[in-house]
Computed example of a mutant assay.
Amino acid sequence: MAYFIGVMSGTSMDGVDAILADITTQATAPIAATHVAYPPELLSLLHQLCDTTPNEINLMGQADRLVATTFADAVNKLLLEQHLSPADIMAIGSHGQTIRHYPNGAPSATGSTGFTLQIGDPHTIAALTGIDVVADFRRKDIAFGGQGAPLVPAFHAAQFAAEGRHRVIVNIGGFANITVLQGTDRGLISGFDTGPGNVLMDAWCQLHCNQPFDESGTWASQGVVNEPLLNTLLADPYFSQTGPKSTGREYFNLKWLQQHLAAFPPIEPVDVQATILALTATTIADAINALPAIHECYVCGGGAFNQCLMTRLDRQLPSVSVAPTTALKLPPQWVEGVAFAWLAWAYLHQVPGNVPSVTGAERAVVLGSFIPAG
């Protein structure tokens, strides 16, 4: 056995997932998972850091340590629940918390250099857990000319590719990305961020229902899609761009939605919710329908539990079977955490973790930085 732990918090910022996996050259076997919510004060701080604010460096330095402490809490909780000690774990793979993602440069800076920024100090994680940490996966891909995202396709290929099967793996977190697997040939992997996943739905639900998300899409299912609004949202230039491409809260956010809404007469909030759910489903489905000979679609991430979204996605993919990754023996909510455990394994075994056809990097490279516990 070779135990690794993957810890991450996605763009939805709904807390930290820690996943224990047994990883060898032959197979990756997920074993257990746990979750730790961000304290409200830290969550508020992270939301501030997703936009320009005064004293950003001071706020980021504070959040960097607090995020790391929460990550370490999740790891230690998982160890306790599984009756394991730090010595049982080969390494932690830490994604960190993304607070900025400008792979093509910040729009406010002329000729600026692209960057991505994840916080969650790996030294603090190593110190608080007593386990070696592999972190900072995205910046190596950026350094080689890539988008730094999505990074899960290499793991998707290792875990889900099957001979003779043309599959798409759809990850619906705050944002949605697809991985296209044509059999087991790694040279045929493609993928990109399709656009918003849950980010707009969560923000709109918080604003109008004072709830962090629309459980199962129940609220959205009570609304009617406003087709003119949907068509206006779909006309955003991002959706017509070809990959490699990635996006984040810096582009698709509540302000973006409200700017579009300002051009319309008042629309019932529940109908807006139905419309932005349709936006997520349509942009994913359009990306898949543009591909040749795809017959299987497996969904992971929080979006897999939004029944209204899954139903609409299934309806918009009439020639494709749609199912959660449970059908491939990996629970949807575990996939990304296992992916970063796998990336830690890949670092230790010098296996490239990026897919240049997905990120646009010059070449495949080993991703991450190693922080020893001692």
Rank of each mutant, 00 (worst) to 15 (best):
F71C: 10
L59E: 04
M60R: 12
P86Q: 02
H123I: 13
P107H: 10
A109R: 10
L117N: 02
I92W: 02
D88Q: 02
K77N: 14
M60S: 14
N104R: 07
I89M: 09
D64C: 03
I89D: 01
T116N: 04
A109Q: 15
H95I: 11
I89H: 13
L84A: 02
Q82F: 13
N58E: 14
Q97K: 01
Q118T: 05
G61P: 05
F115C: 12
T110Y: 12
G93H: 07
A91Q: 04
L66S: 08
Q62T: 14
T53I: 10
A106Y: 07
P39A: 11
I99M: 00
S112K: 06
S112D: 03
N76R: 09
I89E: 01
G111T: 07
H35N: 08
I57L: 13
L117K: 06
G93Y: 06
Q82G: 02
Q118K: 05
H123R: 09
G120N: 05
H83G: 08
G114K: 00
G114D: 00
L49H: 03
K77H: 11
T116C: 02
Q62E: 15
S94H: 02
L117C: 02
Q48H: 08
S112N: 02
D51R: 15
A109Y: 15
N76A: 08
G93T: 00
K77G: 12
I92S: 06
G120R: 07
L84D: 03
N104I: 01
E81K: 12
L80M: 11
A72D: 05
L43K: 15
I99T: 04
H35V: 04
L66M: 12
S85T: 15
M60F: 01
